[in-house]
Amino acid sequence: MFGFTAFRKHLKEFAVFFVLIIICLSMLAYSGSQSETFKPKKAGMDLLSLCQRGIAYTGGFFTGTVNSIAELHTLRKEYQELTKQMEEYQFMEKNYLELFRENQQLKRQLGYLEEGEIEKISATILGGKTNNLFSSIIINQGENKGIRKNMPVIAYSSEFPCLVGKVVEVSGHSSIIKPLTDRSLYIPARLQKLRYEGLVRGSGAEMDSPLTMNYISKRMKNDIAEGDIVVTSGNNDIYPENIYIGTVSGISAKEYESSLELELQPFVDFHRLKYVFVLKVTGEPDEK
């Protein structure tokens, strides 16, 4: 009798175990075949991101209060400097608008196709990875602002647009970004000055680890120097061109390979990243 009871008890545990495993495997198999974010994941992301928002804002309030006291005395000085800079920029803007009009006119005359409009959706970073298996960044905007899967994400560093990564999961009010340092992200890129094109890929281990750029012919080795800037080439539907990726920090040419391997230091500093912009290009990116 006891044995039967014990068996029945364990049978229930095993049954629950197999049901849970089947649920997990079904989710894995189903989500792999879907281009859209899996619906239960969307709901879960929304619910948990709400809690993250609470934690982030509470933390932000305390650190903001402490920091604002320290920042007050520098504000006046900065204000005066900025007013001066603003006057300069107003003058520059005038020149820029003239040049822009001239450029548009020339483009039309040469029959260039109009580039798609790019809308920037600003977002605040709520959090990051929960374990060391995958790196990710969570932001506080989602489908409510028109964010979709595969949209590129940038941040501004020294006034330059720098690539942060791309959107991989979207829910109603939050999105998950895969950083450009991830191994599975391939970015068509080119050297800004020399215009040699290649493919940039992350190393996947750490967010500040270097990137690698491949498929640049060995013949170009003498032309490339450390410090050269690498930008997106715009050769695919996801990343528009001329977004800053990184600078060359190392050049290696393996004997058995026909192309160079460039080591790049990413422009974006993930340690100081607080706000990002999701780029919405007219003509939606393909679902990958």
Partner: peptide, 23 residues
């Protein structure tokens, strides 16, 4: 299962990945 699923919701891992391991 619940802890793994929560992690799946907050990371780029496909749903079920962490849930399977943690279960």
């Amino acid at each position: 299962f619940i802890s793994g699923l929560a992690e799946d919701f907050l990371t780029v891992s496909p749903p079920g990945f962490n849930a399977l391991i943690k279960t």
